[in-house]
Computed example of a mutant assay.
Amino acid sequence: MEYYEEDRENLGQANKYELALSKYNTALHDDEIAAKTANLLNKYMQENNTKEVKKFLFNCIDLTTLKCTDSEESVMRFTEKVNEFVDKYPDLKNVAAICVYPNMAEIVNSTLEADDVKIACVSGGFPSSQTFTEVKVAETAMALHAGADEIDIVIPVGKFLSGDYEGMCDEIEELKDVCGDKHLKVILETGALGSSENIKKASILAMYSGADFIKTSTGKEKPAATPEAAYVMCQAIKEYFLETGRKVGFKPAGGINTVEDALAYYTIVKEVLGKEWLTNEFFRLGTSRLANLLLSEIVDEETKFF
């Protein structure tokens, strides 16, 4: 059977991604993943319920405001609270980053005074990823120009689910090229992927395409982050590291409403990936609610600082 040149090229591309996936076990069963995740949390989570762990988790927060009601004034006030934290709690490390829409990067950049706090922007047609690649590239470039240190994008979920791995991966690669040495966090929107097998495949392909972090969810789709999705993603990160030697970060986001939720993700990272990943260079929590809850438990009184 003869192929036209274009067919050969397409087949080669398809084989390229299938070959990448073939190096990993993606034949996962949801019930087995649920059982393994529950067993891990039952065995190890309680030992991590300490003040030191909560201080660490606070320092891993990407403090997030992604509301349609955000304005320059509200984002400025949001950022000023992060500045004030330094004087109010001099013995505690601050949040890891402030995460906003791209059009708010400039106001955060001009307001932020706290050291070691990054500016993260969602980009690429967040949260649906349904726009032209050229628009995603322009939006990302503009966010970086306005002061963003990190970019959070969503995979084109429809392309992934329809088997267009080339389309998905090309887009991630193009946006990573725009980011250069700035971190690119790639959101899988795990609740829309439908299975542990798909989460594993999407994790591998995102890392293969240059993701510096893989992230569970936007928080705009249900279900958002789950411990089971986190377990699969951390296993993928571990296997990818063993295969390539490249360390990729992990960020659960969406639906992280309690300290217990945060402790669960910490436990999964610690037990699956190990202590090397227990730094905010490789572990983040995307949330707005959690900061006050963690802070309250750290200082032993109910606190609504943020």
Results as ranks from 00 to 15, higher is better:
residue 122 V to Y: 00
residue 213 F to P: 03
residue 200 K to R: 13
residue 68 C to M: 10
residue 46 Q to C: 02
residue 35 A to M: 09
residue 184 L to E: 09
residue 220 K to E: 03
residue 25 N to V: 12
residue 101 Y to I: 03
residue 162 S to K: 12
residue 131 T to S: 09
residue 6 E to G: 00
residue 143 A to D: 09
residue 186 V to Y: 08
residue 302 E to D: 06
residue 271 E to F: 00
residue 150 E to M: 04
residue 248 V to E: 00
residue 280 N to C: 03
residue 57 L to A: 10
residue 76 M to D: 12
residue 216 T to K: 10
residue 306 F to Y: 15
residue 154 V to H: 03
residue 93 K to H: 10
residue 61 I to M: 05
residue 249 G to A: 09
residue 300 D to A: 09
residue 128 S to N: 08
residue 162 S to F: 14
residue 230 A to S: 10
residue 144 L to N: 05
residue 218 T to R: 05
residue 305 F to D: 09
residue 219 G to D: 02
residue 1 M to N: 08
residue 161 L to V: 11
residue 214 I to Y: 13
residue 47 E to T: 07
residue 29 H to I: 14
residue 251 K to F: 02
residue 214 I to E: 11
residue 268 I to F: 08
residue 34 A to I: 11
residue 119 I to L: 12
residue 15 N to P: 06
residue 10 N to M: 11
residue 19 L to S: 12
residue 90 P to M: 01
residue 197 E to I: 00
residue 102 P to A: 01
residue 177 D to S: 08
residue 231 Y to P: 03
residue 19 L to F: 12
residue 91 D to V: 00
residue 146 A to L: 04
residue 70 D to N: 15
residue 175 L to Y: 03
residue 256 I to R: 01
residue 63 L to I: 02
residue 109 N to Q: 10
residue 10 N to I: 13
residue 221 E to C: 14
residue 285 L to R: 10
residue 274 G to S: 00
residue 245 G to C: 03
residue 91 D to P: 00
residue 213 F to W: 04
residue 52 E to N: 08
residue 224 A to F: 13
residue 60 C to G: 02
residue 83 N to I: 01
residue 108 V to I: 06
residue 159 K to R: 13
residue 135 V to G: 05
residue 91 D to S: 14
residue 277 W to M: 11
residue 164 D to V: 00
residue 18 E to K: 11
residue 303 T to L: 02
residue 40 L to H: 13
residue 92 L to W: 08
residue 147 G to F: 04
residue 190 T to Y: 03
residue 66 L to I: 03
residue 80 E to D: 07
residue 120 A to T: 15
residue 32 E to G: 01
residue 110 S to V: 12
residue 88 K to P: 06
residue 234 C to N: 05
residue 122 V to E: 04
residue 115 D to P: 01
residue 22 S to D: 10
residue 96 A to H: 04
residue 160 F to S: 12
residue 246 R to S: 10
residue 246 R to K: 15
residue 128 S to K: 09
residue 131 T to A: 05
residue 188 L to I: 05
residue 118 K to D: 09
residue 249 G to P: 07
residue 96 A to G: 04
residue 182 K to W: 09
residue 71 S to L: 07
residue 161 L to Y: 01
residue 11 L to Y: 08
residue 291 A to L: 11
residue 244 T to W: 08
residue 239 E to D: 15
residue 229 A to N: 08
residue 74 S to Q: 02
